[in-house]
Nucleic acid binder design. Sequence first.
DNA 1: GCCCAGGAATGTA
DNA 2: TACATTCATGGG
Length: 286
Amino acid sequence: MIIQSKNFNIQQIADSGQCFRMNKIGNNKYSLVAYNKYIELAQVDRELVEISCSSQDYDEIWKEYFDLDFDYGIIVDRLLRGPDEFLRKAVQFGDGLRILKQEPFETLISFIISQNKNIPAIKRSIEKICERYGEQKEWNGIYYYTFPTPEQLADAREEELRSTGLGYRDEYVIKAARAALKGDLNLGALKDCCYKEAITQCKGLRGVGDKVASCIALYGLHHLDAVPVDVWISRTIEKIYNYNFDWEVYNGYAGIVQQYMFYYIRNIRNGSLMKDGGEDEIHRKA
DNA sequence: GCCCAGGAATGTA
DNA sequence: TACATTCATGGG
């Protein structure tokens, strides 16, 4: 079905580093596996996206998944009219970004895997885990694998997990799956508490620090105040702002601001930005 | 072959 | 508290 929405660009979302199972399959076309479903997305026009799903699945899953009840234009306009030149350019560049509401358990495992890995390697590992521990399903002749449940992952053997390229993270993944299964970590409940508490709880898991916990809070629990600070964000705070940046200015949507920032610095000039250049270079190219 | 990756745990001062 | 080192593997 065709969805009309402002600030909804599937290419930008696919390349925003928040999800790992959204892949380009053609011109302005992407596939996505989430919530045990496979869909294809096509950017028909600037404000038109075609989703290969029933109206029932749209109402029950995808409308929520893409956060389509929220008007990101409010945030975009506010930043465009704001005093921060770097952020003005960042939102212009990524004005179709949205914060997805991904499955908490998948988000937890995915970002545990993400530590000290590049995005193609993360995707590859996750896909192998789905093939080995998830379920095979079919949609219109296309076979895909669901992301494993905590039960399916909890009794995996470490050596078997290793073959998916996890490296030393294998024990982290198993322990997290068992914690989710036993209820030591109740991800569902963490949606309702404040973001700081959610981050603290997630950090109780081995292999989960501030950054990964913030990713879980933002992308899996939709705590918009959670701000994942990875190497790129911290490089930006250093080189663009000279360590002078206050997230509290953006109270209530700091995580979204972080997303515009991340997408901008990662994707402008082919990603190899400000290794030793800094502010001048970034603005010249912008 | 080399450097780095949407980091975290551990050790050292 | 503030850095430095180590970790296993793959992409570019």
